[in-house]
Design a protein around this nucleic acid. Sequence first.
DNA 1: GGCCGCCCCATCCGGACGGATAGGTGCCGT
DNA 2: ACGGCACCTATCCGTCCGGATGGGGCGGCC
Lengths: 204, 204
Amino acid sequence: MRILIADDHDLLRDTLVLFLQQEHGMEAFSARNLAEAIQLVEEGPAFDLVLLDYTMPGMDGLDGMARMRDMEGAERVAIISGTASPAIAEAALEAGAAGFLPKTLSAKSLVNAIRFMAMGEQYAPLDFLRGAADAPAHPLADKLSQRELEMLEGLSQGKSNKEIARDLDLREPTVKLHMKTLYRKIGAANRTQAALIAKQEGLF
Amino acid sequence: MRILIADDHDLLRDTLVLFLQQEHGMEAFSARNLAEAIQLVEEGPAFDLVLLDYTMPGMDGLDGMARMRDMEGAERVAIISGTASPAIAEAALEAGAAGFLPKTLSAKSLVNAIRFMAMGEQYAPLDFLRGAADAPAHPLADKLSQRELEMLEGLSQGKSNKEIARDLDLREPTVKLHMKTLYRKIGAANRTQAALIAKQEGLF
DNA sequence: GGCCGCCCCATCCGGACGGATAGGTGCCGT
DNA sequence: ACGGCACCTATCCGTCCGGATGGGGCGGCC
């Protein structure tokens, strides 16, 4: 089984490759950025699974994954990350990732996940998606209504009220109302603070 | 040599411990958060070196390191991180850390660094402190003037133009002027986007 | 000397934003 | 049935923001 691991954290990559080599029937290759990974895919025989770090030179969010998936010899691509939120994990899975692996995963679980994904299944740790069961998800997120979260999402992309209204098919006054209540709930004085809080909280 | 590694990323921790075990004369122990680490230090014989992840339950920035250093059996404490900036690294060293290890360090360098620190020396990768020589630090930062960076700093705290003007002892029109040129330089359509870009770029 | 970049200030304008108020719907739980 | 909550819309108002224009001062570089 040929596995390609692309991560700019040499420490993890080096030790992980060594670890996987010990596993029966696994061949692990590594790259330190997306460009290197793409080159390896171009050169060699096809990989059974490619693991891409979410924050890594050349990735640009999920764009990097899309580029990788378009290639020959990289059918199954999974995202690995130490900081990404459940929302990003879901986005990755929707975008066709073979799986999402937080770095809080144990080494043993990783091996299982890799085998699982290499067989064509989609993998993601359920407790992570649910918002990390033990660590109460987002202290903020569950205090907000659905609409308010959508506001926050638009906000986190630097959109104006007008743009958000258009995207959600609402009138602008409605957006402004939601904004007001949103600010009160999360303790923001203005939209910039709200966006920063959302980022800080790992939302979006 | 007794080494304690505390990191909530099981993946790295597991593989790293296995890797270090193979090294001659190294005994590696692990904890998944600060509380566990403190407990291990209390229980067992003294460690020659303790590695603490910078972003980890219980750390609270560098406070966690200070708490650890106050303990018996944890003379030398180093910080390890995958995301922290050079500024944080310097702060850690000034606060008495035995070293700072970015996760972009190679496994081999890590072993050398550990031996070095265990002997009582202070370690940090010079290229990282210098701002990652090869990867030009902040592609944006050096395109901005001093004033513009100060604007961005205020922006990153969600301040209004008026507040920024007051803090820097300027008139508001001046702040607005700087903002305008700032937006053009970094390609932001409004202040929220500018703040998000700053965060994304790791500034402030 | 000219030119350019950075810095400071002022005035003006249109549009965006933040807040208040008021009215409407629908759903849920007691 | 009623209150409570989330949701949608509207109007009004004062402020803030983004942009343009026009000043002026400073230093460096060709």
